[in-house]
Amino acid sequence: MSGKFIVIEGLEGAGKSNAVRVVDAVLASHQIPVIHTREPGGTPIAEALRDLWKQGLNGEVTTDKAEALMIFAARTQLVETVIQPALAQGKWVIGDRHNMSSQAYQGGGRNLAELVDKIGEVVLDGFEPDLTIYLDLDPAIGLERAKGRGALDRIEQQHIDFFHRTRERYLALTQNNPKAVVINAEQPIEKVSDDIQQAVENFLKFAK
């Protein structure tokens, strides 16, 4: 079986970490070799860009367009040096976020959809996940969950309208997308986990 790229997407507090564990467990039960990635990040250069984007430097924070460019720079580094080589070796990759995050957060939340789409076309050249699991929930619920984890980061501190725009873009991107599965992340975690497991098992039936 050739390597496949499965990505977990969702707003803050959607339960991406739990989803990664569930997907990992399903693939392990089928004895499928797996590596894990996260975005932005996943390589030393990409992690440095993540820190710069999130924290700024000497009091200077990134502009919206610079944010989009930095995330794509980190993504390119990760795809070319980690993800594609792993897939070529027959390994499966579980990604915590990928390009749909940029389309939703920077494209929808920041209102930069045209820029994000253009950069993605050039940088990714058609590369995309084989399966995207999108964990959908009301932004207000997600942010309350995020607050329970501790202090909110720069992105989590955005106005609620930002997250509503992001969610709307996620829903538009996943609608009628044969490579995407939408999971109701407002359900009890046991039901969410069961739905994720079923989505991966269904995918495995047709994976080659």
Rank of each mutant, 00 (worst) to 15 (best):
Q197T: 14
R169H: 10
M100F: 14
N18G: 12
L115S: 10
E190I: 06
E156F: 13
R38S: 05
Q89A: 13
L11C: 11
I196Q: 06
V200E: 07
M70N: 03
I83Y: 02
A86W: 02
K118H: 12
L52P: 01
V79F: 04
A25T: 11
Q89P: 09
F203E: 08
N111C: 11
G56P: 07
L131T: 07
L49H: 00
R50H: 03
N184G: 08
L52A: 10
R50G: 04
L49R: 00
E60H: 14
F5A: 05
Q175H: 11
F5Y: 12
Q175V: 01
A73H: 08
V34Y: 03
L152K: 05
I183T: 07
S101I: 08
D136K: 10
V181K: 13
P44R: 06
S193Y: 04
N177K: 04
H159V: 11
R38W: 05
Q157Y: 03
R38H: 10
I141C: 08
D195R: 04
I35D: 01
P188Q: 10
L204P: 06
A86M: 08
N202R: 14
T166N: 11
A172K: 11
G15R: 03
A14P: 04
Y170I: 01
Q175W: 07
N18L: 13
V192S: 07
G42Q: 03
V34C: 07
G107F: 13
A180D: 13
R145W: 09
T62W: 02
T132W: 02
K65N: 04
Q197L: 01
Q84I: 08
V7Q: 02
I6M: 05
K54R: 12
E186Y: 09
A180P: 10
G107H: 15
L152A: 02
